[in-house]
Write a protein that binds this DNA or RNA. Structure first.
Lengths: 203, 203
DNA sequence: ACCTGAACACCGTTCAAGT
DNA sequence: ACCTGAACACCGTTCAAGT
């Protein structure tokens, strides 16, 4: 990795995030980030080894905005739910980052801090090591999977509308359920799914 | 959409999947698929509008391999679990397709058939429309989220090993749990998480 | 009319030429 | 020594030239 000089990682990441928010994932190029920073394209490589590392920096920068302090007064289940909802809130402000998150989540220090907080609650709840691992991975899968499902095929979007128009003879359950689904908001959807998972965890 | 002549969608998709399996996601280019089919690059555009549609074809082709018949003799929870595990089995044979799945799942007829089967079980179990929607979307988020987590950061991989080496002073829960996590296999992880979700559903 | 090669407008990245 | 523009090897896709 090259040595940063005048710019810090958060400065690079913030510039890349500005490009991402403005021009979407397709617009996030090394050239665009360089222009955003007012430097030549190749100068970005002073700070970042390659595009993957730039993406990882953006993901970490977004997740660094998640407050990982556990609300001590709440019951365990609510503690986990609050931590999960904070991730969703922060990511929701930068929807174009969603496809990058699962690819780079595991390299992010901010993600590790969050994971440590969640695992702390699970340990306090008395879950043994093996159950803790499975529970934590299930939460990971749900939270980041839900973000992608919400982003790529929102219930309020055209995909659901198309499902509602399907021939009920071919898809009896899907067609009728899709009509119901259009009335359910994204918050209700995310929290509802999370509650199912937490009930299964019996915290 | 251009009209297919000598080749069917499954033939195009199968060729693209061969490229994907052999050369990975980076290797999946219009040129490579054309070569695989023994035609000029632009001839692929006879069958496919653009790259996104090619990807969608591959995703549908993979998901078309999922048996969506419901095992009638099993209890509801197992029925859903079997349907979910069949997706994982089919996708597991083509790991490079994982990043494409969430992006194109909602356009796939095979995915709709699968969704209809799952929703059928949820309806039989007596879940009302709103609860059925939330439960179904939670299952979607978990199944496809778990595939991505399993693929991008497997418990047996270097990411977990790195977590295990973290300073316990910084990440008390994560470091110790990561050491436990290395002993948990991918089947146990997927099924364990699914069981938590199904228990929460109270099927 | 159908098909497809050349060409265009990009991209990430290498490398050597600038200071 | 540090920085960066030109150039390379790609990419998806347009378009006009072939048959």
């Amino acid at each position: 990795m090259p040595r940063p000089r005048s710019l810090t990682n958060p400065q690079i990441a913030a510039a890349a995030l500005r490009v991402l928010d403005r021009d979407g994932l397709d617009g996030l190029t090394m050239r665009a980030v360089a222009t955003e920073l007012g430097m030549g394209t190749m100068s970005v490589y002073r700070y970042v080894a390659d595009r993957a590392q730039l993406e990882a920096l953006v993901v970490d920068h977004v997740l660094a905005g998640v407050d990982t302090t556990v609300p001590a007064a709440e019951p365990r289940g609510r503690q986990v739910a609050v931590l999960a909802e904070r991730v969703r809130t922060v990511v929701g402000a930068h929807t174009a980052v969603v496809p990058l998150i699962l690819a780079h989540r595991h390299t992010s220090p901010a993600s590790m801090r969050w994971g440590d907080a969640v695992l702390g609650v699970l340990a306090d709840a008395g879950l043994g090591p093996a159950r803790r691992v499975v529970a934590f991975r299930a939460l990971l899968a749900y939270v980041f999977g839900a973000l992608q499902v919400e982003h790529f095929s929102p219930l309020a979007g055209p995909g659901t509308a198309a499902l509602a128009e399907l021939d009920p003879a071919d898809h009896p359950h899907l067609a009728s359920t899709a009509r119901e689904a259009q009335g359910i908001g994204p918050d209700e959807e995310f929290r509802g799914g999370l509650e199912i998972l937490l009930r299964g965890l019996e915290l």
